[in-house]
Computed example of a mutant assay.
Amino acid sequence: MATQHTRIEEHPDIMSMRARYAAASAKPSLQAAEGLTLLTGLYLAISPWVVGFHTNAPLRVSNLVTGLALAVLALGFGSAYERTHGMGWVPAAIGVWTIIAPWVISGAADGTGPVVSNVITGAVAIVLGLMTAAMGRMNRDRSASADAR
């Protein structure tokens, strides 16, 4: 017995699902979280030069790459939240890595500046990631309860 799979574009509720996520992305709270996530990612990328630990190449590269990844995710959330809402947990994961990176990469050998910068930036990324994921989850839960009626 063969199972036939349909493409998502053929799903009967695709237009209403996209409309619900588009409405969620228009909320000021989610737009604020997206903008702050973008700024957090950009700060993380330039933090080695701002804080002064640019001589620590491994941590500098880590912050640059994860900061740019966070900024790109924020752009994705802002431009196509209806298709990227499932990745709302990724900024929180980047935040966790940002917090532990000074110890994992260099044993916090550069002093307190990189540690404090990474811990604060990582905590902000975690909070913003959880907010983004929660917005998508609340929207999905509301649509499921509306469909049940």
Rank of each mutant, 00 (worst) to 15 (best):
P28R: 14
P114E: 02
V127T: 13
W89K: 13
N139H: 06
R18E: 00
D147Q: 14
A57G: 05
K27N: 06
P58R: 13
L68C: 11
G52H: 02
S143F: 10
I126M: 07
T112K: 08
R149M: 12
V61Y: 13
V127F: 10
A123D: 04
P58G: 07
A125D: 00
H11I: 13
N139G: 12
N63Y: 00
A26L: 10
Y43W: 14
F53K: 02
E82Q: 12
S62Y: 08
M131L: 15
I105T: 14
G136Q: 01
P58V: 08
P114L: 02
A109I: 15
S106V: 09
A71D: 05
I8F: 11
G113D: 00
F53C: 07
M87W: 08
V119L: 06
A101E: 01
P102K: 03
H11Y: 13
A2V: 08
E82S: 13
S29N: 08
V116F: 05
A2F: 10
M131R: 03
A148R: 05
V104C: 12
M15F: 08
R7I: 03
G129M: 06
L39F: 14
H5T: 14
L75Y: 04
L42T: 12
S117L: 03
G129H: 04
I99F: 03
V127H: 07
Y43N: 04
A57H: 14
V90L: 15
G78M: 02
A32L: 15
P58A: 11
L59P: 04
L42I: 15
A69D: 02
A33Q: 04
I8E: 12
A109P: 01
A57N: 06
I120W: 05
E9A: 10
R140V: 01
S16I: 11
E9D: 12
L128T: 04
V61H: 05
K27F: 03
V61W: 12
A19S: 13
A69Y: 06
A24C: 15
G41W: 09
A123N: 03
P12T: 04
A80C: 06
T84W: 07
Q4E: 14
A134R: 15
R83T: 04
P48T: 09
Y43S: 11
A69M: 10
F53S: 01
S145H: 09
A93H: 02
E82D: 13
V124W: 05
L30H: 04
A146F: 03
A32D: 01
H85I: 12
V104G: 08
D13K: 13
G88K: 01
L73C: 08
M17D: 14
P48G: 05
S25M: 10
I100D: 01
I14S: 11
S106K: 11
L36P: 00
P114Y: 03
L75W: 04
M87N: 11
Y81E: 00
R140A: 04
V90G: 03
V65R: 02
N139V: 10
T66R: 08
L130I: 13
V115H: 06
Q31I: 13
V127I: 15
T6N: 03
I100F: 14
A23L: 07
E9L: 07
G136C: 10
N139A: 15
A71Y: 05
L68H: 02
A148P: 01
P48C: 09
T84E: 00
